[in-house]
Design a binder for these strands. Sequence first.
DNA 1: ACATAATCAATAGTATTACTATTAAATTTG
DNA 2: CAAATTTAATAGTAATACTATTGATTATGT
Lengths: 225, 225
Amino acid sequence: MNNLLANIKIAINENLFVKDPNSSDLGKKIIHHSVIMIEEIGFEAFTFRKLGQKIDSPEASIYRYFESKNQLLAYLISWYWGWMEYRLVFETANIASAEKRLEKSIAIISNEMKENMIVDDISIKKLHRIVICESSKSYLTKDVDKANKEGAYLNYKQFVSRIVLIIKEINSGYKYPNMLLSTIIEGAHLQVFFAEHLPRLTNVQKTEDYVAKFYTELALKAIKK
Amino acid sequence: MNNLLANIKIAINENLFVKDPNSSDLGKKIIHHSVIMIEEIGFEAFTFRKLGQKIDSPEASIYRYFESKNQLLAYLISWYWGWMEYRLVFETANIASAEKRLEKSIAIISNEMKENMIVDDISIKKLHRIVICESSKSYLTKDVDKANKEGAYLNYKQFVSRIVLIIKEINSGYKYPNMLLSTIIEGAHLQVFFAEHLPRLTNVQKTEDYVAKFYTELALKAIKK
DNA sequence: ACATAATCAATAGTATTACTATTAAATTTG
DNA sequence: CAAATTTAATAGTAATACTATTGATTATGT
């Protein structure tokens, strides 16, 4: 998989940047180091000034690429879902059974990647941790409608709708496929966070993939007639 | 029935305020207007300066009650879960069937209150909307472990554990009661938000209580052997 | 080749924010 | 009624997000 996907470019809506960060060395440095920095110190403490110091460029230069740190976060999260869609399509391509494809999908959502891949200067592992901790902040805002109009969540919605199709294959009459899916995705992220910080809100198990198992069981029982 | 009935005052951990806002008129004004203001303009835009202007008190006076706006948010959310526990105990008290009690619990979590109640100067309806949009920000922080040690999430955990007991009554062998519950609670909040702003991530239905219905069905199917 | 246009990053800001040090006033206590 | 304590107000600081402007670099057209 590494070889197949390593140099694929993820399409990002043009409203999510001022200048395409993939078009210059500075842009790539901004992406590369912002992922490292946000994962390390959190989005609240992350500032363009600190990032500028890290990459030895002035704060203002970063504003040539992103008009705010919120836009940068939206870019990264959109990239994440673009990347996840690629993975989804690839890894479910040759599975005939819809149930097995759903199972695989939930595993992709829930499980951390074992090897640390770098794609487009982005550390997948670190970006996954950013999505867990910070992604809800990108839509739980008063600007959500504006951001939505500008296409900030398109990649996320597209990812969701792909798996919704699988659910409909299993049971075309099921009334809540989108609800079920957004519940699973946001829930899976939450459980990882709770396991680490608020264990009384989850049920940590010995097996590595218990989150995926829980949500797979939940989904299949819910969907079946 | 129990001590909750006698005590209408919700108990809040002492680490969640500098001075008890219930101990003075200014404190009560801070609580009352902060709920109104956060619901209206969102937690990001909310500042102690704006609140001070609204209640005609200087910004610094508010710092006598809360050391930061994050602490104030933590206080409000903790109050919410204290209040929700009170409701839970009260409204499930005379229901014999564990399944019916679970159903009622999920309804309490999911459904908006019809009448707008004011308790301890707090608008329940507005606070519910704050919890939907802002509560995840109070734990998705780098300070989560510190806040947890100081008891910021005690009321939430206590609320969860009460319903976990109901689930165990239904099926004592079920392995994931806490996971299921935190999934339902956070999911129910999310679906309300998505229905309003990102409808492609949910499945809006005509009935008022479809969120409760979805999660009740999900829960019962998951729990049953 | 060379003038023109476009793009680039750097400097030096501004406005706003969260938060604090200090003091004056009010209240309580002995 | 004087001393001690609690109260809120003033006037800040430091850090933040973000911007206006300029000079340097690169690309383009004839």
